[in-house]
Structure formats: structure tokens, C-alpha cells
Design a protein around this nucleic acid. Structure first.
Lengths: 154, 154
DNA sequence: TATATTTTAATCGTGCACGATTAAAACGAT
DNA sequence: ATCGTTTTAATCGTGCACGATTAAAATATA
């Protein structure tokens, strides 16, 4: 059966599975993050801070591909939870330095088991580690390509 | 260098690339969807309706993995644009039937070139069609696995 | 047939995403 | 040194996502 609109079928497109997979992944983290009382985007910010503490809003944005319009309110919420501090840099008053508090740093220990638990929940599946590695490589290639196209103006 | 928190590094995780790829994909569609005056989630709903017209909110939700709390307001916006109609089914007053209007159906022609244009923007890349196919298969496998884990209660 | 249960869409509140704009600080070029 | 440009974070408005709840209709059960 020939259909000149076949390209518009949902299942022919790459865009929907990416969207669905991303949302499902967020939900998968849900129960673990509830225990830490943070959301998934907040978790990503904490990951960045646990790996490289004390950095500008801009730097966090580069690492997560987010800008201040998203980050500023999110960082304020994490500040309100007592997990980080925000203060203007003396050397350059335009920038705001975000740094973990003791409480924020301590949360790292509670979060340490999450990747392992997420990972092991896939162990009984037909998806091998080798496959996941290939998949992640392709995903990163795709991101680089997309990033170039989307941000070509900048 | 040994690091007991290495698993918490952003670049070791699968979750972030999925999140980033999904957001970048949405942005890539941006310019094309601006011309149709719809958003990306609205485009997904239209794809579903172009493929199978006249269905309940529930059915659309199954296809996009969304629920009425997200869909109802979104459908109302598309209704306000004159692209679809919403009305209670006579046979079962609980359900709402969503159907394309003439205008909504006509938009299909304008959208028909989008997948091609998106696809061709990757042509100069090092990503082959074969690779994309493998990637999509893995993505769907991942979605099925995630869906099972996330919705195991239901 | 009454009553309990399930299904369906809608509503509400919170927290992202993001385009567009703003204000202040820093920088650069004359 | 001054003035225009760039950089940086913040603000604002709109539109998702989604957990929790609600109300009405349909269905199942006693």
C-alpha cells in the first residue's frame, strides 16, 4: 500500500522514541530521587557539582546545555533546600559562583548507589553492556551533530 | 585514579545524553513547526491524528505515553487553533472523541516535507542510514524495557 | 436492583524548558 | 579615557509533564 504521507507516521520517526525514552528515564529515577527530595533536573545539577564543585552558572549551563532562564530558578530551589550557595564573584561581578554546602556534599553519599541500582535493574534484560556502550556512543554522536545544527548561529 | 563516586560522573550515565538528545531534537524541529504555528508536543498529537483520525483522548495518550492531565490542555489549544474538535461520545459519555477539522487535515500537506527535511539535514554526516536503523531499534528496545519497569504497577 | 468498583477526562499545583528581553559589568577599539 | 559591544545572570510569559485528586459515567457484584 502506497502512502505519500507514510513519512509522517509516528513509528517511522526518530524524534518520538527519543522523547519517550527521555521521559521514561526521568520516571525511572523518580523513586530514588524522591528519597533525596530532589527532582531529576536538580539531580543533574548536583551531579555536575559533585564532579566539579564551585563553578559559575554559565559553566553548569555548558555542561547540561541549559541557560540561566532555566538554571536560575532551579538553583534557587536547591539553595532553598540548603544544598548549595550562590554568590557573585568578586573578580567578575557578572558571574555567580555556585558551590555545594556541607549538606549538598553529604548528599553525594546517599546518591552514590543510584547509578548502580538503575544499572542493575537492567541486568535481567536482553540488553548487553556492549550494546549499551554502542548505544551511548551513537547517542553522543547524535548530540554533537544536533548541537551543531541547532546552535549553528552561535 | 580511583574514585568511589566515579559512577556519579555525568558522562558515565545514560540518562543525561537521552535528556539532551530529546531537547535538541525538539529544538531542531522548531523552525519547521513555527511555520505551522504548533509546538513539538502538538506536532506529535497531529502525527497521531493524521495517521489514525477520530480517536479518544485515552487512545492518543496510549500512543504518545501521555495522560489527560497533559493532553487535555494541549488538545484545547489545538482546538482553539481550529485544527481539531473534541466531543463526548454518545455511546460512552466518559470518553471524548478527538477528530481533525478540515483545517487540521489540510495541515498534513504542509507538514509532509518535514521528515524529509530533517532527515536530509543529516545526509552530510558520518551517520549512515544503517546506523540510524540500529539506533532506532535499540531505542525501542530500551523504551519497552523502561515502560515495563516504570509502569509495572499498572 | 442497589451498591461497590473501575474507567475516563478534567482540574490543580509544582517544576521545568525556552524564546525574548533587560540590566549591569567587563571588555575593546579607537 | 570614552563609547560601543559583548558577556553574564536574571526576569517574564507560555506551554508542557506529571503526581494527586475529583466527578461522572459505565460496569461488575452482591
Amino acid at each position: 500500500m502506497d502512502d505519500k504521507f507514510a513519512s509522517l507516521y509516528l513509528d517511522k520517526q526518530l524524534c518520538f522514541p527519543l522523547y519517550a525514552a527521555s521521559r521514561l528515564t526521568t520516571k525511572l529515577y523518580g523513586p530514588y530521587l524522591d528519597k533525596l527530595d530532589i527532582t531529576y533536573p536538580q539531580y543533574l545539577v548536583m551531579l555536575v557539582l559533585w564532579q566539579h564543585n564551585s563553578q559559575t552558572v554559565n559553566k553548569i549551563g555548558q555542561r547540561l546545555m541549559l541557560e540561566s532562564n532555566t538554571l536560575t530558578p532551579l538553583l534557587k530551589r536547591l539553595e532553598a533546600k540548603g544544598l548549595l550557595s550562590r554568590k557573585r564573584a568578586e573578580i567578575d561581578e557578572r558571574t555567580v559562583i555556585v558551590a555545594l554546602t556541607k549538606k549538598g556534599d553529604d548528599l553525594k553519599a546517599a546518591a552514590a548507589s543510584i547509578p548502580e541500582q538503575i544499572f542493575s535493574s537492567f541486568q535481567d534484560e536482553s540488553v548487553s553492556i556492549a550494546e549499551i556502550t554502542i548505544f551511548k556512543d551513537m547517542l553522543e554522536k547524535l548530540i554533537n551533530s544536533l548541537d551543531e545544527k541547532v546552535n549553528k548561529a552561535k
